[in-house]
Design a protein around this nucleic acid. Structure first.
Lengths: 146, 146
DNA sequence: TATTGTTATACTCTATAACTATA
DNA sequence: TATAGTTATAGAGTATAACAATA
């Protein structure tokens, strides 16, 4: 930090530090996604649906960090590609319920090994304890009320 | 995690956990940036330049997590807006050296208080120790070779 | 009136390749 | 041959408002 800096070191800025760490982690993930091929956003949606089962779009948007207008467009192509299904909710007809298909699950399954290799590599370098601690802190931060 | 899930919980996925944590932290920062107004990318560039002094574009791209073609376009408008200056390097004429201007610094200065309020708020909720520990772990992760 | 989701629009960033200039 | 940066281009995401349908 130079004497005329108005701001603290960028590596001690949480938004910047989170971004840089994510870019590091995402590098091999992007290589993997290019082979599928699939965007990061679609991959997150599949992961969220695999985890949560049949859910409404607002939930997906929140969990996958996407805006509803973006999600509408992305789900349209994922439905056309047979990766997800959508149906109107019986009780609240405003809601659309979204579910992953076997084909969507197949994409996750096919890339399970590659995913594991990537996370094992990170774990091997950072150490299991630090990685667990980091994930705990990130979960805690994510829940902070701002 | 449901019995048919192929992947581990998304909150234990480093790419997703980093993204969610960042979205939480960025919410108030985006409010601040809207008032300037300025994009996240330009804000990161100003922060990096304020920290590093006069540097070449490849360095900015790396530090601010931007691709060179994106940076070229963004710096063009920032130069037109008087926030940065660019000059050809004397020794290596392929290099462009970029420096923040007083006007660019002024933007950082004007928003220093708002920035501090945001980070203080996070620190108050997460705790100073945890925040420091998190930043240390992020720095370590960012340096991992993948 | 509030909520869920869609559509429209403008803007911005991403990603890649091809290119220029310089080393 | 390699490197620093630019340009071109296509694609995708972001952000906001306005809207329709439903609660």
């Amino acid at each position: 930090m130079t004497s005329q800096s108005y701001t603290k070191s960028t590596s001690r800025s949480l938004p910047i530090a989170l971004l840089r760490a994510r870019e590091t982690v995402m590098a091999p993930v992007r290589d993997m996604l290019q082979n599928i091929p699939m965007t990061e956003q679609k991959w997150r949606i599949l992961r969220v649906l695999d985890e949560l089962g049949e859910v409404e779009q607002s939930t997906i948007a929140h969990e996958a960090c996407l805006l509803l207008p973006s999600l509408t467009r992305i789900l349209r192509t994922m439905e056309a590609d047979g990766q997800i299904t959508r149906r109107q909710d019986n009780h609240d007809k405003r809601c659309t319920k979204v579910k992953i298909t076997d084909e969507g699950r197949g994409i996750l399954e096919e890339n399970l090994l590659a995913s594991l290799v990537i996370s094992s590599n990170i774990e091997a370098q950072l150490g299991r304890e630090k990685l667990d601690h980091l994930l705990n802190l990130l979960e805690e931060l994510q829940a902070v009320k701002i």
